[in-house]
C-alpha cells in the first residue's frame, strides 16, 4: 500500500488485512515490552495544520511502538504561520528524509494533493482533511465493532449484516464519510440520522438509509449507534436553534439509552460534548466503546504504518 487517503474504494480484502494485522498489534500493546523493531530507521512526520491532540498522539504512539523516528510538525507557530505554502513545506519534509507523512489539514483534498504532487516521495496518511475523510478513524471503528462482536475469532471476518446508525452532524463529518464507505464495503448496513440541515444536500451515490427521527432509529435496535460530535468550529451559520433543542432531538440521552437494546454498542469518535450529543451516563455505560476506540486507534495505526512502510516499494 502506497498511501492511505480515503476509505472510498479501499478494497474489502485490503481493509480486512489492515484489521487483521491490527489484531496482532493489539497483543503487542498488552506485553511488557510494547515495542517492535519493524520500522527502525524510518522517519514518520506528523504534519498537523489543525489542532488534534488525540489523533496526533495516537499516530505518535503507533510509530514509536514500531521503532520509527517521529517528528511532530504543528502548523501553528511554524513556518506555515509565516506564510509558507504546502509545496514548500512538503519539499522541506522530503529534504529531511520523511518516509511517511501523516497529514491533518483543514482543506479537503490536501493529503491527496501531497500524494499526487511529486513534491515528496513519502507515503501519505490522511489523518483528517476538512470535511472529506478520516480513514484511520473508520478503520479503528470497524476494528472496535468487529472485536466487540467476534472477540478472539475476529480475524478474517467482515461486518456482514451489522446495522450501524450514525447520528448527528453528517455534513461536516469526515468521520461519517469514511465510515459510510468502509462499513458498507465490509458488509454493514448504515443508517444516517440527522436534522435535515446537517445532512449533505446530495446523498445520491451514498449506500445508506436516511432517517430524521432518532427515536424511530433506536426502536429498530441497531447493533451499533455512533454519535458524532457537534462541530461548533465548522458551523458559521446556525444549523439548529440551540444546544438544548439539539440535545432533545438528536442527543443520546438517558431515556434513549434505556430504549436501546442492551447488546447495542455506543460509539463516539471523541472528543465528546457531554450533555449535548451524548449524556454522561451513555458515554460511561458498559455499552460505550469510547475508550476501546482510543486503545484500538493505536493498534490500527500501527497496522496502517506497517502496510505503508514495509514491503517492496511499488513506485
Amino acid at each position: 500500500m502506497r498511501h492511505l487517503l480515503t476509505t472510498q474504494g479501499l478494497p474489502r480484502d485490503e481493509a480486512i488485512a489492515i484489521l487483521d494485522v491490527a489484531e496482532d498489534m493489539a497483543a503487542v500493546g498488552e506485553r511488557e515490552v510494547k515495542k517492535l523493531p519493524t520500522l527502525r530507521g524510518k522517519t514518520v512526520i506528523n504534519l498537523f495544520f489543525e489542532d488534534s491532540t488525540r489523533t496526533r498522539i495516537s499516530f505518535e504512539a503507533a510509530a514509536k511502538r514500531l521503532s520509527a523516528d517521529v517528528i511532530n510538525f504543528a502548523a501553528k507557530g511554524s513556518s506555515v504561520s509565516k506564510g509558507e505554502n504546502l509545496k514548500d513545506t512538503a519539499q522541506t519534509l522530503a529534504a529531511m528524509g520523511a518516509d511517511a507523512v501523516v497529514v491533518r489539514h483543514w482543506a479537503s483534498g490536501a493529503p491527496k494533493t501531497l500524494a499526487d504532487s511529486g513534491w515528496i516521495d513519502a507515503g501519505i496518511v490522511n489523518a483528517g482533511d476538512g470535511t472529506h475523510e478520516h480513514p484511520t478513524q473508520a478503520l479503528l471503528d470497524a476494528f472496535t465493532i468487529r472485536r466487540r462482536l467476534h472477540g478472539s475469532a475476529s480475524r478474517g471476518r467482515d461486518l456482514d449484516g451489522v446495522s450501524v446508525t450514525i447520528v448527528g452532524d453528517i455534513v461536516h463529518s469526515r468521520v461519517a464519510r469514511s465510515n459510510v464507505w468502509l462499513l458498507t464495503t465490509l458488509g454493514a448496513k448504515v443508517t444516517l440520522v440527522a436534522p435535515a440541515t446537517l445532512l449533505p444536500v446530495n446523498l445520491s451515490g451514498w449506500p445508506v438509509d436516511v432517517s430524521f427521527d432518532l427515536d424511530h432509529a433506536i426502536a429498530q435496535g441497531p447493533d451499533v449507534i455512533m454519535m458524532l460530535r457537534v462541530q461548533g468550529e465548522r458551523m458559521a451559520a446556525a444549523f439548529f436553534p440551540n444546544a438544548r433543542e439539539y440535545s432533545k432531538q438528536w442527543g443520546l440521552n438517558d431515556e434513549r439509552m434505556r430504549a436501546l437494546p442492551a447488546s447495542s454498542m455506543v460509539m463516539h469518535p471523541g472528543p465528546m460534548n457531554r450533555g449535548l450529543e451524548i449524556s454522561a451516563a451513555a458515554a460511561d455505560s458498559p455499552q460505550s466503546t469510547v475508550l476501546d476506540q482510543v486503545r484500538n486507534g493505536v493498534s490500527v495505526r500501527m497496522s496502517v504504518l506497517y502496510h505503508l512502510l514495509s514491503g517492496a516499494v511499488e513506485r
Binding site: 487483521d20 497483543a27 517492535l36 523493531p37 519493524t38 480475524r155 514495509s310 514491503g311 517492496a312
Partner: peptide, 16 residues
Amino acid sequence: MYRDDLAQNPTRPTRP
C-alpha cells in the same frame, strides 16, 4: 515484525 527482509518482499500478514 522481526524479519530482516520486510523491505524486499510484498507486505506480509502477521500471525498471532
